[in-house]
Nucleic acid binder design. Structure first.
Lengths: 352, 352
DNA sequence: CTGAAAGCGCTTACAG
DNA sequence: CTGAAAGCGCTTACAG
């Protein structure tokens, strides 16, 4: 098996497949193996001269610590698991772009704290035994609220003592981080009022498992009341695609005969469906009807007119998920769970 | 430190923080530790009766194999690393939705083969020492072609012998998977010709580091030649945002004075910029000017009119990346590297 | 078919 | 400040 003719080999024993251990580095640096470990870990007890000698030897041998051995010894993984719950049968490209953005900022936040992220997309058979198999120190769960089986599974894991923080769970009993939905809805509604709209309907649902929809309706209703206006719920039907929910809600609004001059939709995809239906029915947006959505997904920027929306601070969202998880792991407190939001006024609501 | 009053403890020695090892399971099942290991690994040499007894004992003790110990022993990680190269300073929510979709299908493909995926987003300081630290058996790199420093870094890692397969590299010297760009461009161009367009310009670049842009221009030129039509390159300027590149390319087309009746843009974001500019200049799309993009990102579905595009089979893309990486790891061959594409005709090119 | 034993490559008390 | 030694929890020849 030996590759004795290998030109790049340092010594006959260190050919191409050679992988240095801390013992090899120790020999190369003329110190003990334990000193190598301390030196490379940055233990301040090691003298500067020794540290340099070890670092140099490690560099020469291309040495890297075997993380599996280190983890076995310390019991810490330096890794967080992130599970994205999808709908059964859903293509990965149809995952909500909001979820992808959140995944990206979550990985970035973990990385900023020196943690790796073990990511998986799960839709039917769930597996959250990361701590049990010592693959990760904790778990962040994101994704489709509709997949109740998934949320049930992870709630059970949390009850078994796993460290879990989530975004989008319909359940209590899972530690969560969410957008400041009430504030966002108030911002959107006040903005429409400032633009001169008064008969503002809100496309939402009182029965959706999505907590944020109820919170957004609440914020809308508060802002309306504060302005002395009557709130009006335009309910969407469960079980349809979001766009279709928006279309149908607008159809009902129109056929009700009761006039309206603006719509606040509790998510962007519903708003885009509503926008299509409004335009199909000949309403000028925003001249006749103003429209604001919620989530800040990219799709809205390309609609005609571009969709006004409320956007969470994605970076803060990732950071809060990770920090809350660290707090759960450490057994310490963490009071931040509401992600700040801001209004993105675009063409669908701004009347020049 | 002991939590002796713990009510749920099974025995005084197995309280809340207790974590069973294979030795505990062995004792519980009345076999040796090595038999536990074999039984749980599904080694067929173990008798069925023993296997059941061990499985039952493991269940009772809530035992899960410590993957770090297993990995240390076997030297295999069962993990693939996935690095998404971002632009420096780029917010994670602005990562190309195409890249996110690819990330999703890559993770899914790895998972379907029983592999975990260690995901990271890198933009400035790069780290690809996954194999060296025994964190993963190989690496898939995706992302922004523009970040040359990133691609340089990973090319160097590949030259050091790391197993790497990529999507989007401007370099040779990295094993790659790509869309069937020529075929996709031919489909788009033939489609425009079938719709009655003849003076079709292609927004592309001869100097872009993006290999796929050159391939797409080539497919366009072939289809034009085959129909006896003259190709026309509408070059975009480097260094601008994609949308702006599309806008300016259209502005130049118009101001050139030479008539055109359709545009094939080599990516959707350029196409969306072109669409905005066309409409701003009063061109009816598709009545006066037909338009097709490339990539199949979601944004195009919401434009007015919706953008026709060419979409790769994302699931196949993830599968090919993973299978090619496995082949590289195993040292075997793998000839599949071109992802099939299909035309998605939408409102921007279909004349009723 | 099963068991006793070695060893994967680290970190960390313990001793000096 | 450094070294010798134990041990993290597995898998896998080797022996029977």
């Amino acid at each position: 098996m030996g590759d004795d003719l290998d030109i790049v080999s340092l010594t006959p024993a260190r050919g191409r497949g050679f992988r240095a251990t801390s013992f090899d580095v120790a020999e190369e640096a003329g110190v003990s193996q334990s000193t190598v470990s301390r030196a490379l870990a940055g233990d301040p007890v090691v003298s500067e001269a020794t540290r340099l000698r070890v670092a140099e030897a490690a560099r020469r041998l291309n040495y890297q610590v075997d993380r599996n051995a280190a983890r076995l010894r310390t019991g810490k993984t330096g890794t967080l698991a992130v599970v994205v719950i999808c709908r059964p049968g859903q293509d990965r490209k149809d995952v909500n772009p909001f979820t992808f953005a959140l995944l990206g900022s979550t990985c970035a936040a973990a990385s900023a704290r020196g943690f790796e992220t073990l990511v998986s997309f799960q839709s039917e058979s769930f597996n959250g035994l990361y701590q049990e198999q010592r693959k990760a120190d904790g778990l962040i769960v994101l994704g489709s609220t509709e997949n109740l089986a998934g949320w049930d599974y992870f709630r059970e894991r949390a009850q078994s003592g796993d460290h879990i923080v989530c975004w989008g769970s319909p359940h209590d009993g899972l530690d969560w981080v969410r957008s400041d939905n009430r504030e966002g809805a108030r911002l959107a509604t006040r903005h429409l009022i400032e633009q001169g709209f008064t008969r503002i309907a809100c496309i939402s649902s009182e029965t959706s498992p999505q907590r944020q929809f109820a919170e957004r309706y609440q914020g809308y209703a508060e802002a309306m009341a504060q302005a002395g206006l009557a709130p009006r719920l335009a309910p969407f039907e469960e079980g349809l695609a979001r766009e279709e929910q928006g279309q149908r809600a607008v159809a009902h609004l129109v056929s009700s005969g009761k006039p309206f001059d603006a719509v606040f939709a509790v998510c962007d995809q519903i708003a885009l469906g509503a926008l299509g239906e409004l335009r199909a029915r000949g309403f000028a947006v925003p001249a006749q009807v103003g429209l604001v959505g919620f989530d800040g997904i990219r799709d809205g920027a390309y609609s005609t007119p571009p969709l006004s929306t409320v956007e969470p601070d994605f970076q803060a969202a990732g950071t809060m998920l990770v920090d809350r998880l660290f707090a759960a792991i450490a057994g310490s407190d963490c009071d931040k769970r509401r992600v700040p939001v801001s209004l993105l006024p675009r063409g669908s609501s701004v009347r020049k």
